[in-house]
C-alpha cells in the first residue's frame, strides 16, 4: 500500500522525497520533513524506530535500508523502477514470512497437543 501510494505521488505530485514519504502512509509519519539532514539519514532513523514496534527480521531491515538509500537519487523513471523492484522483493519476503508462520503454527499446535497429552498422562 505504502509503495503504491509512493509510486503514484512520485509520478504526479513532484514534491520532494521527504514530503512524499511522509505523506504516503502512517508508517513514515515520524519522518522529518524539515530537511537539513540527508534523506538517507532521516530514513535510517525512522526505520530504527520500527524495531520496537514491528516483528521484522534482520533481512527485512536490510531490505528497507537498501530501499531508502536509493530513494530520491534518480529521475522519475529510475525511481519508479526502483519502487517496482522493491515491491517484488518485499512481496517475496512477505511470502516467506507467511510460509514460516504456517509451518511454525503447525509445529506449535503439535507441540501444544503433545504437551497436553503428556500433562494428562502425568496427572492420570
Amino acid at each position: 500500500m505504502f509503495l503504491s501510494t509512493l509510486s503514484t505521488s512520485l509520478r504526479y505530485q513532484g514534491a520532494d522525497i521527504f514530503r512524499l514519504v511522509h505523506s504516503s502512509g502512517e508508517l513514515f509519519s515520524t519522518l522529518s520533513i524539515t530537511g537539513g539532514e540527508p534523506f538517507e539519514e532521516a530514513w535510517k532513523k525512522t526505520i530504527c524506530n520500527f524495531r520496537s514496534r514491528y516483528a521484522l527480521t534482520s533481512q527485512d531491515f536490510e531490505l528497507l535500508g537498501e530501499f531508502g538509500s536509493q530513494l530520491g537519487k534518480t529521475d522519475t523513471e529510475g525511481q519508479l523502477s526502483h519502487i517496482e523492484l522493491y515491491q517484488a522483493l518485499f512481496s517475496k519476503q512477505l511470502s516467506l514470512a507467511e510460509e514460516e508462520v504456517i509451518s511454525k503454527s503447525k509445529l506449535y499446535q503439535t507441540m501444544g497437543l503433545f504437551a497436553g497429552v503428556s500433562a494428562a498422562i502425568v496427572l492420570v
Binding site: G14, F18, P38, K73, T76
Partner: peptide
C-alpha cells in the same frame, strides 16, 4: 536537489 533528483528533472 534536496535529495529529490526526480523533482528537479
Amino acid at each position: 536537489c534536496n535529495y529529490s533528483v526526480y523533482a528537479r528533472q
